[in-house]
Nucleic acid binder design. Structure first.
Lengths: 364, 364
DNA sequence: TTGAAAGCGATACCAG
DNA sequence: CTGGTATCGCTTTCAA
């Protein structure tokens, strides 16, 4: 009768406290799964909160809370600008959220494997509150993720998923949309019949397998005159990529197009050029970086699938932040559509990257 | 010496007040250009604020302020889902910002012209704090915009700009990127030589003129074997569009492609189909709606330039909200890249729209 | 384990 | 026009 819902005002912790005959301090503690609350009172509080439809006022919480958060960002240094952009996006989002209570610790490593693991361990040992990481190898990640889970440290993956590792969420481009879009572009541009190939890092990595799968099924469905060859694994090595591409061109002279699902497109382009096949082979690449820009400009690459690294960074940070500070659980998989970049709209993206970089430089 | 910057704490209005020997109340008033402050004290406060690097704490402001805002959203009902999506985006953003102090009044009108003006007048008369609107005709907008300016009501445009009308900002797709991307797709798909055409609403509307310009210059630059015909104005009328397209096909049998810059692609498709030219004419359309989906599926339309109406709505609301509540001035032009939708990635977008619509329905 | 009470930083009302 | 002060909803000592 006199409960807040009937008065039209929004329920506060004071309403919960009064309804239960306890203090707001206790309610606050109960709401946060903190220690120092009886299981019994916690249950009562939670129940009452639900009953009267309590929603915390974030402004009040933010204002009164002195809590500092530390999040670790564990990413690859990278050979292209991809990871720089991801990190920039994270930083950007933190600034735009106007968060002074969040500290970001960047742990950037040169190569995969040990240093990746070391960085993750370091973050856990440093006692950060959350981690944003790139999981290159699910298996080596697993023990560390168990550790993180025990310590209740949420982990958000960027760019690639590592399923069943107990991560809070993964932020990435929709792999199916990427592969299928590349296939459709390829099919429309190539027309006619012949073979098309796909290069990837490793067919066992979810991300790459899915892109290939999407590419292949789309070609089959809409461009039956084209056949898709078995995927070429480049192992992230220039020479491997170059050699395999050369061999491919020798063995299949009727090759009409190549879709490079990774950022390792330069060796492929070089191989096609060296085989003097640039005019008969349509190349669709992934990501966007200075060297590739030239190749798009001169027409060697028809289009590139831009994976919006900055947006990935922003979303990853936002998901982690909201979980940490507001207790919300993000979608387990946050995905979005990649952009198609061709000669025509290339400048739009370059300008955008440049502008943002400048803005960032000025602000620091 | 003892100023806050040296103590490591962030400056507050109390710091300003103490430094000036006045009260926080006065500082607060001065900061808001409110009445009841001497020009002199205001100046002093502003200066001191700048000097010590004062940044208002938004949480505190939000918590203590009981101010209610009302914003009017004046948009077309529309024949496709475009405007529904824009409105959904606005609503979505308001919800995600967790704003209970903002009321949105939707003034949706059937047709352009008078009802558009009436809606704008109604909003001003109702005394809203801000307006999000679609400016179909800059000239008829002008007197109303002067009225808005006098009353200090910020106006954000969506989808189309109306320059020099004193609007706070415009949110739209980058028209150059759109036209250029369409051109590049067209060039790559069509190859060879021949003519390509562009349809638009009216060559005098900035948005359409820019898309045409971008399309034309991109074709000229990268696909010199193709020539771009003079733009076809459809005046947003089915029959006009259909007839003009038919005539075009009769007069120029070597037409290779048509880029429809507006949502009026159905009559064009029908005309091409009736002329039995679907297999020789590549159609690139704009936006995404049920009827068009079929045409993409069956291959009549090679690709559509998706203008991300939901994102446009979100950004428009966000820009207006931040201006209203935080006093920030958004970029005058907020633009982003359109998405390319083809058969391959079509489902990704449909799913996304469907999911969001369902989520919205559930929440209401 | 719980309660009382002191803020967090800004706004807004009421006197002066 | 200006100053004092209660207040917004929640977190966080400090005692009990």
């Amino acid at each position: 009768m006199m409960n807040p819902s009937s008065t039209g005002k929004k329920p506060t912790i004071l309403d919960i406290a009064k309804a239960l005959g306890i203090s707001t301090a206790t309610v606050s503690r109960a709401l946060h799964n903190n220690q120092n609350v009886t299981e019994e009172t916690r249950a009562k509080v939670l129940q009452m909160a639900k009953k009267i439809g309590f929603k915390p006022n974030l402004a009040a919480r933010y204002l009164s809370s002195k809590r500092q958060m530390r999040v670790s960002v564990n990413t690859l240094k990278g050979t292209t600008s991809f990871w720089n952009e991801v990190r920039a996006g994270i930083e950007e989002e933190r600034k735009s959220l106007d968060l002074e209570n969040v500290q970001i610790e960047f742990r950037t490593y040169q190569d995969l494997g040990d240093s990746e693991i070391a960085a993750f361990e370091a973050a856990l040992e440093a006692g950060v509150n959350g981690i944003i990481a790139f999981p290159s190898n699910p298996d080596s990640m697993r023990p560390l993720m168990r550790w993180a889970a025990r310590s209740k440290i949420p982990v958000v993956y960027v760019a690639t998923d590592a399923p069943e590792t107990g991560r809070l969420a993964v932020v990435s481009i929709d792999t199916f949309a990427s592969g299928a879009l590349a296939a459709d572009l390829m099919g429309r541009i190539v027309r006619g019949s012949g073979k098309v190939a796909v290069t990837l890092f490793d067919a066992h990595i979810t991300e790459h397998a899915e892109k290939f799968e999407a590419f292949q099924s789309t070609i089959k469905k809409f461009y039956p005159n084209l056949s898709v060859l078995d995927p070429i694994e480049d192992r992230d090595t220039d020479t491997v990529s170059y050699e395999k591409t050369r061999r491919l061109l020798e063995q299949s002279p009727d090759i009409r197009g190549i879709y490079v699902t990774t950022e390792l497109s330069m060796p492929v382009i070089r191989a096609v050029r060296d085989a003097e096949s640039l005019d008969k082979v349509t190349i669709i690449s992934t990501d966007l970086f200075p060297q590739l820009v030239e190749q798009i400009r001169n027409g060697a690459v028809a289009a590139t699938i831009y994976q919006r690294p900055r947006t990935q960074g922003r979303m990853a940070f936002r998901a982690l932040y909201e979980h940490l500070l507001e207790g919300t659980n993000p979608h387990a998989q946050i995905t979005f559509a990649p952009h198609v970049v061709m000669r025509g709209n290339l400048d739009f993206f370059l300008k955008r990257i440049a502008v943002d970089t400048k803005a960032k430089a000025k602000a620091l």
